[in-house]
Design a protein around this nucleic acid. Structure first.
Lengths: 237, 237
DNA sequence: CAGTGGTCTAGACCACCGC
DNA sequence: CGGTGGTCTAGACCACTGC
């Protein structure tokens, strides 16, 4: 059973969507609203707090609670950590074609720091180019320490999103990443591979991935063609 | 006076920083902790909830509450909406030199949609190039509807961050923005102005700015030299 | 099963805002 | 000042986890 404050939150959302409450409208006082929903004031407040965080309500101390104008939908919100497969699906693309390679090496220094490894430890380097209509659209390079992931790549196909493979094979759940947004230089070989038209531009995301205890478990370097992938971020003061 | 749950939150933060609690450590039960802090369980939980959202604690239902590994500090977090002035300060740069221009025009179509304007309405177009050691490092173009901002630019100097000018002169507070992350094409004239060395790369942020009622109040197009400005985002599943 | 966190309540008092 | 939201409590019961 869903908790009451979630139910109320969803009811309020529906009322806003259906126009019962219009942008700018003021709610009744918390006491009134709680009575109306037949819950305690604190329970009603829990629902409001969630909606406030989502930017759907504005609560002013000593004044009242107001319905906000809806924010336009943001496609491909960069704050949501999703697989490239999912991103392509959302963009209406099928990543049927791929070129992949896996190698085992000692860890390149650049990644050793981010992964908290000594430079002599072994890592998988998994490289994948996704193609659409014969054109490359995104190249991803994943660096995975062998000590965490053992020999998962010998056991499984790679058709599924990497996140799923890791979780199923090793129990490691990647839940967050610190992502640096970059533009590759014109001499970058991966950039050149994506340069199908002279006006193609490419975004480069360098990501340090963490498990649910904030341990760095994986590093990835992803090159996205900017004419195909659009990234958004919501910024707040 | 600060509320108790904030005080407790800060106390817990201090205890984690000073090593009283180590990453991985488990707290006592909520009842025990609340007793220890001499507050009710709910109050203690409010403090924990904040720390959980910041990724400093991990709460597992039916198991316990644990201290997380600290996430590395992220400079220039893109999720924080800050002025370019503040960003440059953080990067150790002084934006002493500037080139600016202001014009009034009817709203270019590209922006009219984002700003909810009809194409015949008038907007300010405020362009600013910031220089460091004689080199341009960032170009920003701000589009401001005249109907919201009147003639603020006649009244004030432009030495302060634009956010401050807007707030002081018109009472309008920009509190969030939807930001599209782009790479300019090589033919973009603003890109070419920043191309001081052949290997310079440039990030282009297109931002729709909202006030505290989610009304779009301003549009901006900012070109950042990527060799000088580094942007980060924290992504979560 | 015992122990943990998750939800919910009724009521109290405080802090802020606008008139 | 009256009305709003903000904090806090003590106690109850539920839901999840691991042994």
């Amino acid at each position: 059973m869903k908790p009451k404050y979630i139910i109320i939150k969803e009811e309020i959302e529906k009322m806003i969507e259906s126009g019962v409450y219009q942008p700018g409208d003021q709610f009744g006082s918390e006491y009134e609203m709680a009575t109306q929903f037949e819950v305690s004031r604190e329970t009603f407040r829990s629902a409001v707090k969630l909606l406030e965080q989502e930017g759907k309500l504005l609560v002013k101390h000593g004044v009242g609670t107001f319905v906000m104008n809806p924010l336009p939908e943001v496609p491909n919100n960069l704050e949501k950590l999703t697989s490239i497969t999912a991103m392509m699906k959302q963009a209406g693309l099928k990543d049927a074609e791929r070129h992949e390679s896996i190698s085992t090496e000692t860890c390149p220094e650049e990644y050793a720091i981010s992964l908290n490894l000594s430079p002599d430890e072994h890592v998988y380097i998994h490289e994948r180019t996704r193609m659409v209509n014969g054109e490359p659209v995104v190249i991803s390079i994943n660096i995975l320490p062998k000590k965490y992931f053992g020999d998962i790549f010998e056991e499984r196909g790679l058709s599924e999103p990497l996140f799923h493979v890791l979780e199923a094979a090793s129990g490691i759940k990647i839940v967050r990443s610190n992502t640096e947004i970059n533009v590759p230089t014109s001499t970058d070989p991966y950039y050149q591979k994506l340069l199908v038209k002279p006006e193609t531009t490419v975004l480069l995301l360098k990501q340090q991935h963490f498990d649910d205890s904030n341990r760095p478990m994986m590093f990835s370097v992803d090159y996205y063609r900017n004419d195909i992938f659009k990234f958004w971020v919501q910024r707040m003061r």
